[in-house]
Design a protein around this nucleic acid. Structure first.
Lengths: 137, 137
DNA sequence: CTATGGTATGCAATGGAATTGCATTTTATT
DNA sequence: AATAAAATGCAATTCCATTGCATACCATAG
């Protein structure tokens, strides 16, 4: 179990420290994207800054991606198998429920290609749909 | 001229105060969406909070829409003729240039309909494409 | 096994921005 | 002109991201 987590980190040349393993474990359990503050709360007394940097490291290394759902605080979710968050065509749609404040990934839904004006060179894209999730209707 | 601006405000039952007319005038001149800080700077010495609340009022009344382009600070742009920012199908695409930091509206590009899972009820959507604009390539 | 250099962590502090309360001014209405 | 409602300006608070620096940890060479 721990070895599996360790593997995930090493794969992306992230040193598997205790903190990082814990954070990864929490992320694995989430069904929706989590903000830094939420992450901090699941940890009890711990250092917010370290969590912040841990998430940043994970993001840099392509382990998680961040979503800006309009709430002000970015949220983080593990990338799925083969997720290539660098390329626009691989980015998926996110859904934000305004009632329960949860942001879920919709990995099966890719962002459709948009015919941009010639002079604009796209690199990434983010599509967040806001509304009510099943539980909150 | 002023009367035209006044009309725009009254149309949406926004009291046409001096401050609001000035803000509206600035917004009309923008070719890209503007952040609160940028707005503040064009004003010289003035009260940030009032500008903040002015933008909020404009947004509530459907005069401007805000875009969260991932820079942390929301940006505001005037809605176009007939823009109905409340409905997903009328929301348009925004382009954010990572070099010059400008966010432009692409009113002619509507966000394509997405086939969401049954249980999700969409209300609005935001699609921000990030990359390089013509000037910055 | 231990010394060493690089990395991660924790604490303190900074900085930027949103947001609210409240007193005062301005506006619309009678 | 008098009044009530709304807008404004100031002060203060809160939240979050981000950085500097000293310490602790880890991997590797010797």
């Amino acid at each position: 179990m721990i070895n599996q987590l360790e593997g995930k980190l090493k794969e992306r040349s992230i040193r598997p420290t205790a903190m990082r393993l814990l954070v990864l474990e929490v992320l694995e359990k989430q069904s929706s994207a989590i903000s830094l503050t939420e992450l901090e709360q699941t940890f009890g007394p711990s250092d917010r800054i370290t969590l912040y940097r841990t998430l940043k490291t994970f993001e840099d290394k392509g382990l998680v991606h961040s979503i800006n759902d309009g709430t002000g605080a970015p949220r983080y979710a593990l990338c799925e198998e083969g997720c290539e968050c660098d390329y626009r065509r691989d980015m998926h749609v996110h859904f934000y429920c305004r009632a329960c404040n949860q942001t879920v990934c919709l990995p099966q839904l890719k962002i459709p290609a948009i015919a941009l004006p010639e002079d604009l060179l796209p690199e990434e894209a983010s599509l967040v749909i806001k509304g009510l999730c099943g539980k909150c209707q």
